[in-house]
Structure formats: C-alpha cells, structure tokens
Design a protein around this nucleic acid. Structure first.
Lengths: 186, 186
DNA sequence: ATAAAAACGGCACTCTGTGCCATAATTTGC
DNA sequence: GCAAATTATGGCACAGAGTGCCGTTTTTAT
C-alpha cells in the first residue's frame, strides 16, 4: 500500500511537478482515500524525506557495527559508501528524486532538515570511538560537516553527472579533511 | 509597515508559538489586512528566513571588499565575524529567533535552505582569491562547510550559551580547519 | 463464529496561499 | 495646484493542505 502510494506520487511528480500534484489525485491513482494518505504521511513533503531519514539511520547502524580498529573518520566513510551501495538499489529514480530536492525550495529545506537529523546519531558514534578525545561538541560539528559534504557530493552528481555518486562522495570527504590544505592555509 | 508586521508576528510567536500564530491575527495586530501580509511575505516562514538571507549577502559583500593580501579562509572568517557584530544590533530577539529556527522542523528547513543559498556567492569569492587553485567545485564545498560550521556554532550558542556567539563561531571555524587533526586522522 | 482491534473512508472545518477586482493613497506630469 | 497614472491596499472567492470526529469495513485473536 505504501509502495503503491509512492509509485503514484512519483508518477505524478514526474509529469506535472511537485506543487501541482495534489494529494487528492495521488490518492485516487493509488486507490486510497485522501484521508488515508495523511495517515501514512504526515505531509506531502514527507513522501520525499522519508527515505532520506531512514538512510541516515542505517548509516549510523553500519557505523556502529564497524570494527573498532578502524579509524573513526574512515569507518564513517565506509558506512556511508556501503549503505549508499545497498540503498540505491530499491530507489526507483534516484536522480529524479534528488532533482526535486535541489530545485524545489520547499523540498530542499526538508532534505537539509532530514540530513541534519543524522548528526546526533553519527556524532554519538564518533564520540564512542574517542574521535577528538570524545569531545561531544566537536563530534557534532564533524558529523554535520560530513553531512554537508554528502549533500554537496549529491549536488555535483546531479548537476554534472559524469562521475558516479560514490566517487563524488569520496572526493568530497577527502576534500573536507584537507580544508586547511597547502592551497589555502591561513 | 514591514517593521510593524514583524513586531506583531514576534509578539504572537512568543506567546502562542509559531504554528498557532495565524496570519489572520498577525495582520490584525499589525493593523493591516491578511491579503497585504502575503504581499510582503510570500509565506509565513519567510518572516524568519528574510534576515538570514540578507545576512549572507552582506557577508559576501564584506568578503569581496577584504584586502587581497589576506588569506581566503581568514578573510571569510573576518567577514562573518564583522557582519555578525554589525547585524546583531538591529535584531530584536536573536536568541528567540534562533530558538524557533532550531526547534520547529519547518523553520529549521527554511533556515538551512537560506543558509545553503549563501554558498554560490561565498564560493565565487573564494575562487576569485584563487583558493584551492580556483577549483569551483572545491570552493563550493568549502563555502558550504563554513555555512555548516556557522550553523553548528549557533546551535551550540543556543543550547548552552555560556560563551558568546563570536567565540563559538571562531572555535567552529578553527575545528573545521582541523578536521583531519592528530586526534582523528585516518 | 464472534468479539476486539485496527484500518479505512467521508465529512466538515481551519488555515495557507493565490487570483481577481474595486478602492484608496501616492506619485508624476503639466 | 490639479488631473492622470501608478501603486498600495482591502475584500472576496477559491483551491489545496492538514486535522478531528465518527461510522463502517476489514483483520486478528480467541
């Protein structure tokens, strides 16, 4: 049922755009009532942010399960990349989804908000591994920075998609770690 | 008139919260019609993101005006801090505003979205100064990272505000540049 | 088979946001 | 000054999002 609603929604989003796709019509095409739609999804935007939120949870789980011998930032990168590989499989139209996320200001906000909700879980894992001596505030910051790098990698992939997404992500993470590199030190 | 609407809005937000403050009542308290409200602000949320968006523009201006002898990341930090000092003066209740931005998911999204709109202007300035050899993608990333550090500094300031905001920001920027430091290298 | 529980649909309602048109205020040209 | 044009405002009606309530259908358990 949930799958059916999402299918109908994406079909409409693709043809008439996000704003002009009414919940009324999505529901009708999915064979449920409008009221039922709102039982599954609190808002129309949530159709989109659902998968983003879940993705973050699963990354955090993978991160937590990584061997303690692995360095914290490396383990975090591993978790993102492996979950990405796994999670992309059951995404119908990843590029179309991302496109809406970047173009529609409403959705962009939702996306970033969902992204920022990953921070606590990731930060906690960093702290457990004694990254930055377990300084919670610093782990929060670094978790947030990785989320931003993740977002920017997606943006680049979406805008000029010659390389594949994991490559963009690896590059962004590496560049994050080299922010204060020789080309641009204080 | 604009000032009057904002005043009325903040008064209501403070007493009944953001969601329960209807445009109807804000407008009435400001002595203006509901229709006029929507002529000034495209949405209710925009009441809040306005100032955020303008802040970014002014930071970019200051950045552009900085002497070329200053290192790019240092000049960026200068611009943020000096604009912060100037801009906080005519903000009525900065902490209350930030509070709503962090607590209300709707507003959090708007805030982050407004923040991410700073990236192009900041990135362009970084590129002009030949940061990272003028690599546009990399400048985008770094600009976004600084925005995130800015956000996290605000969050910390809001959550446990013993130190003042500029101190939090300086610390966050420094920690960003030391992401790959000795405590947490790969 | 039947009772309890969960899912669903319909309806009415509030609120946001918009289009349209009439009216009041302000600016501009003379 | 004054008339015309421009601009700001208000009123109204409307579509869509989201919610509360209640009755009905479908599942599930016993």
């Amino acid at each position: 049922m949930l799958r059916e609603i999402e299918r109908a929604a994406w079909e409409l989003f693709g043809t008439v755009g996000f704003d002009r796709a009414t919940v009324e019509e999505i529901s009708r095409n999915a064979g449920v009532s409008r009221r039922t739609f709102f039982r599954y999804y609190r808002t129309k935007e949530q159709l989109l942010s659902f998968s983003v939120e879940h993705f973050g949870e699963r990354v955090a789980q993978r991160f937590a399960a990584a061997p303690k011998s692995r360095k914290p930032l490396a383990a975090l990168e591993d978790a993102v990349l492996s979950e990405l590989k796994e999670g992309m499989k059951d995404l119908r139209q990843p590029k179309e989804m991302l496109g809406l996320m970047f173009e529609e200001p409403n959705l962009r906000g939702r996306f970033l908000c969902a992204l920022s909700r990953w921070v606590p879980a990731l930060s906690k894992e960093l702290a457990k591994r004694k990254a930055y001596r377990g300084d919670a505030a610093r782990c929060d910051l670094v978790a947030a920075l990785y989320c931003t790098a993740f977002d920017q990698a997606h943006l680049r992939w979406y805008r000029d998609g010659n390389l594949d997404l994991p490559t963009h992500i690896k590059r962004a993470f590496r560049q994050l770690r080299e922010t204060n590199g020789p080309d641009c030190s204080r």
